[in-house]
């Protein structure tokens, strides 16, 4: 993989980030409502003060000047002040972000750990009993919305069996192994809900992509050279079949973040998803905008990582 390829990819990312910021700003600019509405109804604030404030924040400028101002502030990390939590938006987000990333990351790992072996096994024996069971389960898995699986999990594992806590707590006291165990125990359900949902749709793609590869001539060649079936599958088939799967994982990142918002809400995980919802219910616009922008950026970054991985998995791409 050449360095040129990576640089080119990085350069392509910039216009899409700009595009996203334009879309977000357009939504904000089109939306009705004035950030100074509260001041307007407050009789203690004279109209001159209001006009001065408007001028200071540039609300009377043409749209594109406001966009450039906003963009500049966003890039410099000046994201505004949360009215509801009484703290700067960027510290608030930095507090919440690691939790979300841990939950999403581990759920992706689970999804891949489940989907890869199941998909490959199903594809090596198409239309067998195992394949049919796996297919049906995958179908059921991605037809179940995450908020319903979440509630089902709570019902079964917390209420009926009383194995796992259903409220996620960030401030567990103690240290060492019991502390770690308590953290793992409370993350199991959110991670599993997200991971199984992802895994279900991945299984189908892994299966069809392995099926595409397994019929190719070079696989037959490998077999006729007398290489064992297990080795043919792991060394020859899976690596090539993985290439489209990597793209798919990246393309599904937006959906994963959507699912994360829902699961965080159900299990009360203190991540950026639940921050988004509570900020919306509290009419806390700076937080809402910043969180949406952060999520959009994360999606773009994950797409970038996938593209680079893609180039590493498939050297043919770099030279195009």
């Amino acid at each position: 993989m050449s360095r040129q390829y990576i640089i080119r990819r990085l350069l392509i990312t910039i216009p899409s980030l700009l595009g996203i910021s334009i879309v977000l700003f357009a939504i904000l600019a089109l939306a009705p409502g004035d950030p100074f509405e509260e001041l307007a109804t407050n009789p203690a604030v004279p109209p001159e003060v209001r006009a001065a404030l408007r001028a200071k924040f540039g609300l009377d400028d043409p749209v594109w000047t406001r966009y450039l101002h906003w963009l500049g502030a966003m890039i410099q990390g000046d994201w505004g002040f949360s009215f509801a939590s009484r703290m700067d938006v960027d510290t608030l987000i930095l507090q919440r972000l690691p939790t979300t990333l841990i939950v999403i990351g581990s759920s992706q790992v689970i999804a891949i750990l489940v989907a890869l072996p199941v998909g490959v096994l199903a594809a090596t024996r198409p239309y067998s009993l195992f394949d049919q069971i796996a297919n049906t389960l995958a179908f059921v898995g991605f037809s179940l919305p995450t908020f319903f699986t979440g509630l089902l999990f709570i019902l079964v594992f917390s209420i009926q069996l009383d194995w796992l806590p259903f409220v996620y707590r960030a401030d567990i006291a103690g240290s060492g192994w019991p502390w770690l165990w308590a953290h793992i125990k409370q993350s199991i359900m959110p991670v599993m809900v997200l991971g199984l949902f992802q895994g279900a749709s991945l299984v189908r793609f892994v299966r069809s992509s392995v099926l595409d590869v397994i019929k190719l001539d070079y696989v037959t060649t490998a077999r006729s050279k007398g290489i064992g079936e297990r080795k043919v599958i792991t060394k020859h088939v899976v690596r090539n079949a993985l290439i489209p799967v990597v793209t798919l994982v990246a393309l599904q990142m937006p959906i994963v973040f959507g699912g994360a918002i829902v699961t965080e809400q159900i299990f009360r995980v203190p991540g950026i998803g639940s921050l988004l919802i509570s900020a919306m219910l509290a009419n806390d616009t700076p937080v809402v905008m910043a969180v949406t922008f952060v999520i959009a950026c994360l999606v773009v970054i994950f797409n970038l990582i996938a593209d680079i991985l893609y180039g590493w998995l498939d050297p043919r791409i770099s030279f195009r």
Partner: peptide, 10 residues
């Protein structure tokens, strides 16, 4: 590339 659900919510 836009994250759907946050945008929907927004």
């Amino acid at each position: 590339a836009l994250p759907l659900l946050p945008l929907l919510l927004l």
